[in-house]
Design a protein around this nucleic acid. Structure first.
Lengths: 343, 343
DNA sequence: ATAGTTTATGCAATCGATTCCGTTAACTAT
DNA sequence: ATAGTTAACGGAATCGATTGCATAAACTAT
């Protein structure tokens, strides 16, 4: 038995002949405790090695100083940067951050949401799994007045805080950029259309083509489940095997775009002369690949910061207030060598 | 006021005319409750929408089903994969994962360790900040019998669970590989020597040189604080400006190695013919850069899994048992074009 | 000087689950 | 049939902090 007994506010109370209430209030700088007493109590707490028990406080308040994160995968540049932004903001406010990953499975998402609920998180930040169609599992949080912030991959029908980018405009601009560079047969690597981000990017692509009088060729639109490196490779080969191969590709993510660059190079295609390519996200690999990949920025850290702020703010305000604020962040096109045909 | 009242075991008890003790035991499949009763209670719990309050249970047990992670930065490929491995393993066992990043600052590490302690985490997984010299802040966990697992960047003097790779051998083998490829003037990008991983890699490098009768040239050893892309670029330029530039570089991470490839290429150096390069970690950028970077694997996911397992196991065993088990994982050299001179 | 107010603090219930220690009833062995 | 077990369940304290409602003292105003 080597576990030292932990010091509680009762121990301090006994030591100083105050009541536990006073100790609690003093440690929280409650205004009804005199400054002198506060000083004395804090000093004693420090000396006695007192460490607050967050669990007890959370139980009493029925709310923990914890933000739950529910995302598909942690080890993706966008996601880990998003988390980093959340963590940084949350920690400054004394909040903990619990992470859970669904691996894009609906079932995992539901299970994880339950566990986070049981942990009485003070707020929830969610980026939907690829699979998810039904979002009833978030209702329990709303019933308890626990704020939810959806980021990036958001549901259409659930009214809540949302932090997103304008995927439509980004898709439109990326496509327009390729058109401006002289591309006339532009392919698109599209993601799962169930998710807003991929649906909107595709819409932007389609509208840009239409607007500039370019025909829409279904053979040039490749739907991939995960836009992985392998899928990108396969898609690129398929496109290049076409009788009339494309002269441009707008990929809904960087991974597939990079694989397209590498694959096309292997086949002796000149980039960007024969084939101009633009991706999405500005992952680290985008600036490393040769030629460097043009892409669309995705402000992950900022999204995380704002999402966390929504939850922290909510803590302050009245619970019923303004639960459905939508924040749209701007993106930029970064033009690199993979699409720069016009000098 | 729209917050639905939450259902507790007391509500179920009242409803079924059982005592709360029985409800609690039934929900936990306690053996002294009849199977029939368990079935009845679980059914009622489900119907009534009961959700356990983890906070209450944790308070009572003075230990939460939570693993705290204390690392430098989340958004690095190695780290986010490590976290992913931890999360996956922990979640299967019903544990939550709280993350905190120190940004390599000692103060942040200490602060975060306190917050995690106050949250009564059931275990702690740590990769030390670059700055950290003093490790007293971990003593509080040991005093309470809370298991600590150090991963990758571990302290030398603190006896605890550890999960590491054999950095010395990896550094030795990476250097030997370059020697085998005909390199005779091999430079080294070394990280902060305070951390075991960089110190050991450098030792391996030095011993390999000695063993093969190659002189050790201090000009060829560059110490960088963070081995960032910029530092790598600067170091490469410095090396290439030398009267006798090196014909090989062993970088203690991939980021700096990739920047070396890009920088050297810009200067018209042929890789690997004029300069062979090998990195460390096998980050995604390693296989994307042109030519692809040879590197040393770093089993991040496996490390995370094992670290989490240590904590989960500890929960089962007697607390005083075997607290200082060290696990050494094996690494492999991946030879890619950046160092392959001999066909 | 008296009533009203402010300041500083204490009392005790509360959050929800867990568990030690009974107790009762049914069952088993001799 | 009686003592001894076992099975199934209840009572009540407990974990540690918070907070609404007192209360006592000191102070202010008239």
């Amino acid at each position: 038995m080597n576990q030292k007994k932990e010091v509680t506010i009762y121990d301090i109370a006994r030591e100083l002949n105050y009541s536990p209430s006073t100790i609690s209030r003093a440690l929280n700088d409650h205004k009804s405790i005199s400054k002198k007493t506060i000083k004395v109590i804090k000093k004693a707490a420090l000396e006695m090695g007192y460490r607050p028990n967050s669990l007890a406080a959370s139980l009493r308040n029925n709310r923990s100083n914890t933000i739950g994160i529910l995302i598909s995968r942690i080890n993706r540049p966008f996601m880990s940067t998003l988390i980093s932004g959340i963590e940084e903001t949350a920690r400054k406010a004394g909040f903990n951050v619990i992470i859970s990953q669904s691996n894009d499975s609906y079932e995992n998402e539901v299970d994880n949401s339950k566990v986070l609920y049981d942990s009485r998180v003070g707020g929830l930040i969610v980026s939907l799994a690829m699979e998810t169609r039904n979002i009833e599992h978030f209702q329990q949080f709303r019933d308890q007045g626990i704020p939810i912030v959806f980021v990036d991959r958001v549901p259409k029908t659930f009214s809540s805080y949302k932090v997103v980018i304008d995927n439509y405009t980004a898709g439109y601009n990326a496509t327009k950029h390729l058109i401006d560079q002289g591309c006339r047969r532009i392919a698109h690597f599209a993601g799962a259309q169930r998710r807003n981000i991929y649906e909107d990017r595709k819409k932007g692509y389609l509208d840009a083509l239409s607007e500039y009088g370019l025909p829409i060729d279904k053979d040039l639109i490749i739907h991939a489940k995960t836009l992985s490196f392998e899928e990108g490779e396969k898609a690129t080969n398929k496109l290049l095997d076409l009788p009339h191969p494309p002269d441009g590709i707008f990929s809904a993510n960087d991974t597939a775009a990079v694989s397209a660059i590498i694959c096309a190079k292997k086949r002796g295609i000149n980039i960007p002369e024969d084939l101009a390519i633009i991706g999405f996200n500005d992952d680290p690999i985008a600036s490393i690949v040769d030629p460097p990949l043009s892409t669309v920025t995705h402000p992950a850290a900022k999204m995380g910061k704002i999402a966390a702020q929504r939850i922290l703010e909510h803590d302050q305000k009245n619970a019923d207030n303004n639960l459905s604020e939508v924040t749209v962040l701007s993106t930029e096109i970064i033009v690199r060598a993979s699409s720069k045909r016009i000098k």
